[in-house]
Nucleic acid binder design. Structure first.
Length: 1008
RNA sequence: GGGCGGUUAGCUCAGUGGUAGAGCACUACAUUGACAUUGUAGGGGUCACAAGUUCGAACCUUGUACCGCCCACCA
């Protein structure tokens, strides 16, 4: 006997263990069957399951379980990512918490040992959380991006690309993260709008030169003419002035034409050491912006870098790896040093030059870049090199103006209008590290790059040729746009945790790239001393190889043969660039085949208010809380704990307590999975509410109770049914509905319409099976006709079993539990539900149109009677007599055949065929038949009159509209004939009904 | 600046040219033998706005407004 309700907490872990130990998650190995494979997007080994993971893995599990039931040879390949920066951060933090020696103190080898230790002990807990969700990965094949196999793959790929010239080392301006003290790729930089300032400074011309500065308006009238001994520039980063290599103006800018080629002085530092830089022309400066003149600091700005490269302008690195002003060297720059080096053949921005020049004056050395900025500004202003403007210049927003309050007006008016430094308030786009959240500094350093442009071509082609398909299709454009404008991929990181770059340097700086040190030694010869490159690779480099490195590449394994290319990749749009595009590039280049055929890009999971879930905002919902339940107290604690801004804690606490005073129930993994699937429409974000999960839990309870009903009525598990041998129209109807639902779900899953699949099942189970089929079956199951009873038991049992199969990919636990309980012992006899044949048919579906029409008529009639009863306030419990007036033979037959059903579900005392409505009866219509309910004793005649009046009025409106349309010659002439026919039919149906209702209405008049 | 998407019931969203829908919320009724984690019935919409195409537009076209997100950017 089934319990009152399903207990997910007890059943889910038990069932999961049973599946796993029975080997259900492994590929069937049936090579005659089609192969189906998915590689998991490897979660960070530091990861903790969040709602995005829950969605991502639920969708994968649905597909994998679906395809397993379709008897394919299915592999879901799991594993984790070593997550270079994130993991190194976690361990470093732990060291400092435990007051152990720091990373640098203990050295590389000892530190890496610590990281491995951490990984073994506390890494990968997310995988256990995925198990809790029901993820049916083949855990026996679990991989890690830093395991031996992946290492081997990474080294091999690196060497190959190096030998092909697709990986190279170069000094380039890269994004430098001063916190991690490492280069990062441009994808790892977030540009954020922040309030900033733009300072205007004067660079005096060398040797006291002067020129006439003329400004003109649009019409060419002179608006300003003055003698100047300086050129004005505008900058948001004054601290980089020390590294300026030139001042650039646009070639067409007449204002500065006369001084192009002359030199000006950077107005910072001790006067005797100030450096002269040339005034040059370049297309880059916009004459309309600022002063039209731009200082060119090639080593600290990406735009300037391009200008400097074009113009051969030297680039000076001012900062160290912490983005502090360089503290080395005492002397100030000397042009002769540069000239000397240049004559020796060095490039203008060669580090030897930069080091030799010692650009940073003593006063600024060692300062943080922001402190340095403040100092530079103060010093320049003090020396009179700031551009001065009247205090009321609209570009200047003084603090006083901002602060102005009532009553201060007079004071403000009294303020003397003098000259002030021109400092504009300006929102600027500032680059931040996506993990460190500190301001990124462009830095000129030696790094390793992948020639992504060369690899991008085939990756673009594969998608345009349809070898790989994006679902939904619109993401293709995002992919195309990015690959079409792809930059070299900086793959070296100045970290320790990761794949060490397989390159060794000889004492003369020769480069030996090889998979192992031994091979590098072979290349170098015995007497060369070798030093391995200190850097590690970007984590995404190994992730890009995931679809084949996990299958055993570079060995030619059977798994590789069977499962590559993989079938489907499921991931979020936020890693299309990071991961999807790079897997495409590497997969095609190394395997000659795309890594996956379909890429399903799922939505972002938002909170119930449409906000991104974020720990620092305090609006997260932990998937495990929904599965296992959480108290209100704990929920508050969790949310407040992760807050970025502790001042918001009271508000978050208040909001959370208000919204979820008692926390959440343990809804179970099934409920969460079903909810996510139901909400996973294509092209829209998912707003997850706890209420929605509760709704899914209720659905699961509904299913449970349907099974209890079957159990009580001894509906067995016939295994299969021959629909043609089934006689009763109710049973024939539900078998048709079942086939239709199965086909719909199958099609939806094939097309990645998870929401339609789950939504279709919800409707079918609740609104068709439970609301109608089970209700219609009750009189048959409790009736005297043994043949009908037996047939109904079989059909009902069969339908419910098929429902369990259809629901299994979505709700694996409750369905597996019910499957066994419906026929105890069947698990031992024929195995788990999980591996049963999927019911959705691709061939011909069973459908009895006549039965369907008949049952729909029954349902319509019952609904109509219920509606009238409810409208007129007939007590729900009252059984009333009904007569059918003017019934056709077919109607009479149906009414007679299903009399028990009608009596029960419409709560009728009797059902007769009559020629005329009984006196005082209330009528409604169904097609040609009037339904006459003798309910005069319960109702208010006036109310009934007004009900009928309203019905007739509504109908007249429809009739009017249809008549208007049909009398429109244009419509009749141009609309398709079947549409015209349809409208005609509707009109005549409405007319018939209106007539009958009117007749009923006038009978009421007779009563008065 | 470039790109993508959105605007339909109180809320969340379906709806590819011909009858405006679902879930939740709301209202009323119901403890009838699977289920109150329930059942039955009901109220509720100028489909953002404007113009156009069409016999006919939530749907197609153009424009406008507002809201998201992504990419690139003026020193």
């Amino acid at each position: 006997m089934l319990d009152q309700r399903f207990d997910p907490a007890e059943a889910e872990t038990r069932l999961y263990k049973a599946w796993e130990s029975a080997g259900c998650f492994k590929p069937s190995g049936d090579t005659s069957a089609a192969a189906y494979s998915i590689v998991i997007p490897p979660p960070n080994v530091t990861g903790v399951l969040h709602m995005g993971h829950a969605l991502n893995n639920t969708l994968q599990d649905i597909l994998v379980r679906f395809e397993r039931m379709r008897q394919k040879n299915v592999l879901w390949q799991p594993g984790t990512d070593h997550a270079g920066i994130a993991t190194q951060m976690v361990v470093e933090r732990q060291l400092s918490q435990n007051q152990e020696p720091s990373r640098t103190e203990m050295g590389r080898e000892a530190f890496l040992e610590k990281v491995w230790e951490w990984k073994e002990e506390s890494g990968g807990q997310i995988l256990n959380q995925l198990k809790r969700l029901g993820a049916s990965c083949d855990w026996s094949r679990e991989r890690f991006t830093l395991d031996d196999g992946c290492n081997k793959a990474v080294n091999k790929v690196f060497v190959q690309l190096f030998n092909e010239g697709l990986i190279y080392r170069a000094k380039r301006l890269v994004n430098w993260d001063p916190q991690f003290q490492s280069a990062i790729s441009n994808l790892e930089v977030e540009n954020v709008e922040v309030p900033g300032h733009m300072w205007h400074f004067k660079y005096p011309l060398a040797d006291g030169a002067t020129y006439t500065y003329v400004e003109k308006d649009e019409d060419g009238n002179v608006t300003l003419e003055e003698e100047r001994d300086y050129i004005a520039i505008a900058t948001t980063r004054p601290e980089t002035m020390l590294g300026d290599g030139a001042v650039a103006v646009h070639p067409s800018d007449e204002r500065y034409a006369s001084i192009v080629g002359k030199f000006c002085e950077i107005p910072v530092g001790p006067k005797e050491h100030r450096r002269l830089i040339p005034i040059i022309t370049d297309q880059y400066p916009d004459p309309e912006f600022g002063s039209g003149a731009v200082k060119i600091t090639g080593a600290h700005d990406f735009n300037d870098y391009e200008v400097a490269k074009r113009g051969g302008i030297p680039m000076f690195s001012l900062m160290d790896e912490k983005a502090h002003m360089r503290s080395d060297g005492a002397a100030y720059a000397d042009e002769s040093a540069r000239a000397q080096k240049m004559s020796e053949g060095a490039e203008a921005w060669d580090e030897t030059i930069v080091a030799a020049m010692n650009l940073v004056p003593e006063a600024y050395r060692g300062l943080d870049r922001f402190e340095a900025r403040a100092r530079v500004i103060a010093d320049i202003t003090e020396e009179g090199f700031a551009v001065m403007v009247p205090a009321d210049d609209p570009r200047v927003q003084t603090k006083k103006k901002k602060k102005k309050k009532k009553g201060d007006d007079e004071a403000a008016a009294d303020e003397p209008v003098g000259l002030v430094p021109l400092v504009e308030n300006k929102t600027i786009q500032q680059p931040f590290g996506d993990r460190s959240k500190v301001v990124i500094e462009p830095m000129l350093t030696d790094q390793w790059f992948v020639d992504a442009e060369t690899l991008a071509g085939p990756a673009l082609e594969a998608v345009s040729e349809g070898k790989t398909r994006f679902v939904p299709d619109n993401w293709r454009k995002t992919y195309d746009n990015w690959l079409n404008d792809i930059q070299p991929w900086c793959i070296s990181r100045q970290l320790w945790w990761g794949h060490r770059i397989p390159v060794w340097y000889g004492s003369e700086g020769e480069i030996f790239c090889a998979e192992t040190e031994a091979e590098a030694r072979d290349l170098a010869g015995a007497d060369v001393s070798l030093m391995q490159d200190e850097d590690v690779l970007d984590t995404w480099f190994s992730s890009a190889l995931w679809p084949f490195s996990t299958l055993g590449w570079p060995e030619k394994t059977t798994e590789l043969e069977t499962f590559y290319p993989t079938s489907t990749l499921i991931t979020g749009f936020d890693i299309i660039f990071f991961w999807v595009a790079r897997m495409m590039m590497q997969g095609i280049h190394l395997m000659d085949e795309v890594p996956f055929k379909d890429v399903y890009i799922h939505a972002l999971v938002l909170d119930e208010n449409g906000k991104k879930m974020s720990k620092s905002v305090g609006n997260t919902i932990d998937p495990l809380d929904l599965i296992q339940g959480v108290s209100g107290e704990d929920l508050v604690k969790k949310r407040v704990h992760g807050l970025k801004d502790p001042e918001k804690a009271p508000q978050i606490e208040k909001d959370t307590r208000k919204a979820y005073p008692d926390g959440f129930d343990a809804f179970g993994a099934d409920a969460l999975r079903f909810t996510l699937a139901r909400l996973a429409g294509q092209g829209r974000n998912i707003r997850l509410s706890v209420q929605a999960v509760e709704g899914s839990r209720n659905f699961s309870t509904k299913l449970w109770n349907a099974m209890r009903f079957a159990e009580m009525n001894e509906c067995g598990a016939p295994g299969s049914i021959d629909p043609d041998a089934v006689n009763n129209p109710v049973n024939r109807w539900i078998l048709g509905e079942l086939d239709a639902a199965g086909a719909e779900v199958t099609k939806a899953l094939e097309e990645f319409r998870f929401n339609d699949a789950a939504g279709g099942l919800y409707k079918f189970v609740w609104n068709i099976v439970c609301d109608w089929y089970l209700e219609l079956s009750k009189p048959m199951l409790s009736g005297d006709d043994e043949a009908v009873k037996a047939e109904t038991r079989d059909v009902c049992g069969y339908v419910l079993d098929e429902v369990l199969k259809l629901l299994h990919p979505f709700m694996p636990f409750v369905t597996e539990e019910l499957w066994e309980s419906r026929a105890p012992g069947r698990k031992e006899a024929e195995g788990f539900l999980m591996l049963k044949q999927w019911p959705g048919k691709s061939g011909e579906l069973f459908h009895d149109a006549k039965a369907a029409e008949e049952i729909e008529w029954i349902i319509g009639l019952i609904s109509e009677v219920r509606s009238v009863r409810s409208d007129l306030g007939v007590p729900a419990g009252a059984k009333v007599p009904m007569a059918l007036i003017g019934a056709s033979d077919e109607t009479a037959r149906r009414a007679n055949l299903h009399k028990d059903i009608l009596l029960r579900l419409a709560r009728l005392a009797e059902l007769d065929l009559k020629d005329q409505a009984p006196k005082g009866a209330v009528s409604t219509v169904m097609g040609e038949t009037s339904l006459s309910l003798s309910i005069a004793e319960f109702i208010d005649i006036a109310e009934e009159k007004s009900r009928l009046d309203k019905r007739v009025e509504d109908m007249q409106k429809e009739i009017g509209g249809l008549e208007g349309r049909l009398s429109n010659q244009q419509f009749v002439a141009k609309a398709p004939p079947e549409v015209v026919e349809e409208q005609k039919k509707r009109l005549s149906d409405f007319k018939v009904s209106a007539e009958k209702l009117q007749a009923a209405r006038s009978r009421l008049d007779d009563l008065d």
